[in-house]
Design a protein around this nucleic acid. Sequence first.
RNA 1: GCCCGAGUGGGGUAGUUUGGAUUAUCCUAGAGGCCUGCGGAGCCUCAGACCUGGGUUCGAAUCCCAGCUCGGGCGCCA
Length: 532
Amino acid sequence: MKPYQKFEAMAKEKMDSHLAGRSIEKNYRTYRPQKNFGDLSFDFQKSKVIPVASEISALSDQYVRFVPTGKFINVKFSDQEFSKSVLEDGMSGELFQFEKRRDKILIEHTSANPTGPLHIGRVRNSIIGDIFSRILRKYGYDVTTEYYVNDIGTQVEALLLGTELFGSENYTESYRKVYESFDSYKDKVEEYMVRAESGNPQFLKESKERLEVFLRDVLTDLEKLSIRFDFFIWESEFILDGSVRELILKLTPLLKDDNGAKYLESDQGKMYLLRSNGTSVYFTRDISHHLMKSSKYDKAIVVLGEDHKSYFKKIEFAMDILGVHNVDALFYSYISTKEGKMSTRRGNVVYVRDFIEEAIEGAKEEILKRRTDLSEEEVRDISNKIGTSAVRYNIIKYAPDKPVTFDLAEALNFEGDAAPFIMYSYARARSILSKLGKDSEVSWKFIEPESSLLKEISLFPVVVEDAVKHSRPDKIARYSYELAGAFNQFYRDCPVLDSGENLQKRVEIVRTFAKTMEELFQMLGVQASDTI
RNA sequence: GCCCGAGUGGGGUAGUUUGGAUUAUCCUAGAGGCCUGCGGAGCCUCAGACCUGGGUUCGAAUCCCAGCUCGGGCGCCA
């Protein structure tokens, strides 16, 4: 058991056996209170009987101290014992281990049509997906990530047609031309769709080859942010392997007809599966896609923008009919700019690659301001790490359901709650650790600034679990920031090197802090650097 | 119009699941302070906020109802 849980369990056990001995009904709730009230609170406000204060105080021992305050009974963990417990677990690595879980989880994210480079709105999907999958993996799940690539359907055929007509050098532009006067290209697009849908292998092969070139642009942007996928699945596969046909057959008894088009009726309205020309719609193929996920994984999570909320409700409706209950979505709100929703036509799109580049440039300037001793190559390497980490951090730090108005200048402000802050505190720690001499004895007596840092460290497993349970990757970012701040205070108050009998203990505290940060960096995809 | 989110100091944001404690978190911008330090991208102090109106409750930022504002959705698109 982790230190926090261990001490919590100790306190509860004492409380419960006391209540049982006095035949008092066990009617309290516990939670972690604001700092000044201690480490754990028993809230008896709903209870008719409140335990006698003097008897409660008497439950205290060397590990936990009970402080009755009216209808609350606060528990303060012993600084000495708790700090010792945290540091021991930190030194052994126990603190960072989670039990292995057998569940296989699939995370699908990004899945953008390759119609152009990624903009920061879309990349929120990638960053949330990537970080959440890293968190789940840390928590012990067997996690696989997937990019679902559309290679059939209206948008894709319009893209392919556009590049045939107007060239593929600027494929985004060519695609847009088709979309802008869609009516005049409608027939041709439809012809492509029918060909794709009929499972014409030659046509699909060519489509895929051409799309792969465009997809590379997206993947290059993601690669800069250290986002990779375990596998890609192409939409056409569900046509080719016959699963769409099977699906339709299975649902036939439930399907209604509208001039040859087929749909399901639900309280959400009509859900079309087949067009009157016989082709399937995206929704249909996505049902097959979800069935595949459902059969291969214990749980499948897809990261979706809020614009897909009602779409996903329909997927859930269909899954329900098919008896599937292990698919889930993680929604996030849009990123807009001060000029409003990002739109290529309005020219207010911020591309990730530009954002990354500016962040790296900004980092470089800051480094050059402070350091003159680094080689050109070191400067480049460090500014790369800071820049890309800053981009990831800046996007993950908000709760997913929070709409974000993106302000480049603000995002490039590296003061305060930003990646450089946490990277800097880590670099400070590493710098101390690089100057050590021989090991000595650890003294297990702690003073306040030490135990206060260790207390913050002890929250690591609590926070990870919280992030998993509530699908809140942003909590990892927030915790990293708080932990880094706690270290900065420790750093101010406690000299480590030349601290006499305190030396080895403080070294171990610093080491444990650094290890905790590394774990957090791994989840956030922040690139650790010993010098920044 | 209907459905789904979000509204917290000047700007941004946590807390809302599971209602509680004279003091609602943190960042930024503002005012002031620390500093030859094991790396100042730091630390400390001050000032500043729960959209409105009802309701439930001993008690509401948190729950319920209504309204307002902002996003999103309501395709034989993806």
